[in-house]
Design a protein around this nucleic acid. Sequence first.
DNA 1: TATTGTTATACTCTATAACTATA
DNA 2: TATAGTTATAGAGTATAACAATA
Lengths: 160, 160
Amino acid sequence: MPKLEKTPSLELPDSDSAPQQADYLDSLVGYAMRRAQLKLFQHTVNKLADYDLRPAQFSAMAIIDQNPGLMQADLARALAIEPPQLVPLLNKLESRALAVRVRCKPDKRSYGIFLSKQGEQLLKELRQKALEGDIESTSALDDEERATLLRLLHKLYHER
Amino acid sequence: MPKLEKTPSLELPDSDSAPQQADYLDSLVGYAMRRAQLKLFQHTVNKLADYDLRPAQFSAMAIIDQNPGLMQADLARALAIEPPQLVPLLNKLESRALAVRVRCKPDKRSYGIFLSKQGEQLLKELRQKALEGDIESTSALDDEERATLLRLLHKLYHER
DNA sequence: TATTGTTATACTCTATAACTATA
DNA sequence: TATAGTTATAGAGTATAACAATA
């Protein structure tokens, strides 16, 4: 049996309460961001569940709308997923008649991806719902704080 | 075949370049945070790979160190994972002699979880490496911005 | 009867290699 | 031969039900 180097005297208020968060971990942006992100993501998942859509499907629709006719390889890159992951995602959107793959390029191996009229209409609704949900899930911040957070996140991602 | 409502005239600089990010998605904190988080998380994964550890294993060690003797149920809650997920994680830490499960409670169903001496020693090294990695992956921000980001993330998570 | 930790299981997400059809 | 999209597959991560030992 291994020797214990510390006495088991906990610093917890009660032995059956939640453990206090380690001060060290709280100093890491990565740790804090992961916890916050999981919370926001779950909120988004719940919001979109009413439409039987996953966040990646919604993002895909928004990117297609902004870049009609783009190729799957480019869409995959924009979503930061691998091309094989895109196949079932697009199949689902096509089966619901929200998007279409069209052989419309000089290179006949590739498809141009477009939203259907239904897809565009639904996207309008989704955009509103998603923004609403995003504001809800960041309601702990005032407008200035939310704008600052957004700016810092973009700065991080774009490595400026 | 579905009717297309938009001409396939792309707004892309070149037809073979990456699609421009949708302006709408960039207005969502959730979207920006997910992208930034994935980037930071990957950086952490790479940093810890030298030690054959996953982020959750490192976090577990830090929480155990701060709360020696805590029960698995409490550790699971602190890590925001389900108790069954903790079993292989702790098995791995035990097999590497970094942590131990000890039947040391009045309630003999539960274990007290402790770091071994080796575990504590490794954790010291890991803390330094992880902080170093965290600062690296947020090097796009100056000290004040990093502190602000940390504050806003905590505010979001703690719903204040 | 309820709870701690565990097993078994399933579903999602992710990543890679191999295949097809075009180029 | 190289590339776009697809298929097959395997590995994580996650979630739930059911079980054994203890309360």
